[in-house]
C-alpha cells in the first residue's frame, strides 16, 4: 500500500516526486521557501536545530566502501496520508488533513505551542518559533502579503505553499471553476534542475503518475507519505529501506 496506489475520495491528493539524482544541493529551494512563507531571517542565536526550516536539504553519504558518492536530500513535510501522526495528537484541532487537497494543514492561530506534533513527526519536519521573529529594518517590505506572519510560541511546517494554492483557486474562480488544478509551490519553481515534480496523485495522466518507480522514507511506519523520491542509485534505496535509528556499524565506529 503506497500513496501511489491508493484511491480515495479526496478530489486532489497533492504530492511530490523528488529526483535525487538531479538535486545538486544548491539550496535555492530552501531560500525560495523561506521568502515565500515569510520566514524571518535567522537571529544570531539560531542554529539548524532551533530555527524555522520548512524545507531542509540533507547530505547523504554512501556508507559502502566501494563507489563513495554523495547525494542531497530535500525534505519537507511528507503530507502523510494514513494515520497522519501529527493530526491525532494535537490537543486542540490545530492540525488537520484537508479533505479537498490532501494537504496536512497547520493552524498557527489555533496552536498552543505544546509541540506534541513535533515529537510525533518521524521526519522532524516541524519547526517551533522559539523566540520572537524579527526582521531587520526595511526588510518588512519583502513580506509576502498572502502569507500571515506567525508569532512566537507556535509550530509551523510546509503546507505546499498554501498561498499559491489560494491564488490558483481564486484564478479558477474568476473563470467560474472551483478546481485550482496543478499550481507551482515556491521550491518547485526555484529548482534550477527541475528535480522536484509537483502534482496530484489522483490524476492518472498527471506528472506524478508518469514519474516511474518511486520510494519514500520510513515507509515501514505505514503513514503513506505523499512526498516520494526517485533515484537510480541502489544505495539510496537500501538506505531508505533500512528505516532504522542507527547507521551501519562501520561508519559509527569509523
Amino acid at each position: 500500500m503506497s500513496a501511489t496506489q491508493k484511491t480515495s475520495r479526496t478530489p486532489r491528493r497533492y504530492g511530490m516526486v523528488i529526483d535525487l539524482d538531479r538535486c545538486t544541493g544548491c539550496g535555492a529551494c530552501v531560500i525560495a521557501c523561506a521568502a515565500e512563507n515569510n520566514v524571518a531571517p535567522g537571529a544570531a542565536r539560531e542554529n539548524d536545530r532551533n530555527s524555522i526550516s520548512l524545507l531542509r536539504v540533507f547530505t547523504l553519504n554512501n556508507p559502502t566502501a566501494a563507489g563513495r558518492r554523495t547525494a542531497f536530500l530535500p525534505m519537507m513535510c511528507m503530507q502523510c496520508e494514513h494515520e497522519t501522526p501529527c493530526v491525532t495528537v494535537c490537543p486542540q484541532q490545530a492540525v488537520e488533513l484537508d479533505v479537498l487537497s490532501g494537504i496536512v494543514e497547520q493552524m498557527p492561530q489555533r496552536c498552543l505551542g505544546c509541540r506534541y506534533c513535533m515529537t510525533a513527526c518521524p521526519y522532524h519536519a516541524r519547526s517551533f518559533n522559539w523566540g520572537d521573529p524579527s526582521w531587520p529594518a526595511g526588510m518588512e517590505a519583502t513580506l509576502n502579503p498572502a502569507v500571515a506572519p506567525r508569532m512566537r510560541g507556535v509550530v509551523e511546517k510546509c503546507d505546499f505553499c498554501q498561498s499559491r494554492l489560494h491564488a490558483a483557486q481564486d484564478a479558477a474562480a474568476v473563470n467560474g471553476s472551483l478546481d485550482p488544478g496543478i499550481y507551482t509551490p515556491a521550491c518547485v519553481e526555484a529548482c534550477p534542475t527541475q528535480a522536484i515534480t509537483f502534482g496530484d496523485w489522483n490524476d492518472p495522466e498527471g506528472a506524478l503518475a508518469k514519474s516511474g518507480e518511486t520510494f519514500a522514507w520510513l515507509e515501514g511506519l505505514g503513514t503513506q507519505p505523499k512526498v516520494r523520491y526517485r533515484s537510480g542509485q541502489n544505495w539510496l534505496h537500501e538506505m531508505a529501506e533500512r528505516g532504522g535509528a542507527a547507521p551501519a556499524k562501520e561508519e559509527r565506529h569509523g
Partner: peptide, 10 residues
C-alpha cells in the same frame, strides 16, 4: 462545502 482550515486562513 467544506474548505478546511487553510481554505480560509493563511
Amino acid at each position: 462545502v467544506s474548505a478546511g482550515c487553510l481554505g480560509c486562513h493563511r
